[in-house]
């Protein structure tokens, strides 16, 4: 099985005033294509830092992160942005939809940035995904008129619309009640199965964790398990 993400001896240090904070210490991990992995651990354990590095929103202080074999530490802002656009999808804890846009427009948004699609191609893809997440009826609604669960469905559709190889989800169920959270995880799992998309998500909800095929536990910037 090919590797979606490889992390080699990665450390991340943040300056904090005159001192430094060691967020990650010599992490060595790899994620296979199609994995459904959760990163768990208490606050401040380095979950977010790890997701930021995998999500190409940051570069490591030491070591290297490979996204589908491509090293990212030397890349500039433009290339990292392009990499995020083309290969990664994001799902956020508080959904992060663009409030002024409708459901359809929110899902369409990454395609418009990516460019190169006809409006029919875009519309087809968006509709297909809306159906998949069960929101066809809400296409024209503003995102702020939706419930939390519905919003996260829109976010999932948006994350998938560019057909990314890897989807990163930061505590996707933290703002949802447990029943809705469970359904969201089920949806993610279904997508993971049907699209063979690699899912890496953080959580500290044991109910969510049990759906994962692999659990990586972090503490104080180091891998405890996984």
């Amino acid at each position: 099985m090919s590797q979606a993400v490889t992390i080699e001896h990665v450390s991340k240090v943040y300056p904090l005033g005159s001192t430094e904070v060691q967020a990650l210490r010599d992490i060595h991990l790899s994620f296979d294509t199609g994995e459904f992995t959760t990163v768990a651990g208490p606050s401040g354990c380095g979950k977010s830092t790890l997701l930021n590095l995998i999500g190409c929103m940051d570069t490591p202080s030491r070591g290297e992160v490979y996204i589908e074999g491509q090293p990212i530490s030397k890349l500039g802002d433009k290339e990292l942005t392009r990499l995020r656009l083309d290969k990664l999808g994001f799902i956020f804890q508080s959904f992060n939809l663009i409030p002024v846009l409708t459901v359809f427009q929110n899902i369409e948004f990454p395609l418009l940035i990516q460019g190169g699609f006809t409006s029919k191609e875009r519309s087809d893809r968006v509709r297909e995904l809306m159906e998949e997440v069960g929101l066809s009826a809400q296409a024209k609604q503003k995102s702020n008129a939706l419930s939390g669960g519905q919003r996260q469905r829109v976010a999932i559709a948006r994350a998938l619309v560019t057909r990314p190889r890897i989807v990163l989800a930061d505590e996707p169920t933290a703002n949802l009640d447990s029943a809705t959270g469970e359904r969201i995880i089920d949806l993610m799992k279904a997508v993971n199965q049907s699209h063979k998309t690699t899912f890496i998500f953080s959580t500290h909800d044991p109910l969510v964790m049990k759906h994962a095929t692999r659990i990586i536990r972090l503490r104080d910037g180091e891998v405890l398990e996984g």
């Binding site: 942005t81 392009r82 995020r84 994001f90 992060n96 663009i98 948004f109 990454p110 990516q114 560019t162």
Partner: peptide
């Protein structure tokens, strides 16, 4: 900030 960050995260360039 969050809206801008989201756009940037999902692939919008600074120029956008």
């Amino acid at each position: 900030t969050k809206e801008i960050g989201t756009m940037r995260a999902i692939g919008a360039q600074k120029s956008f």
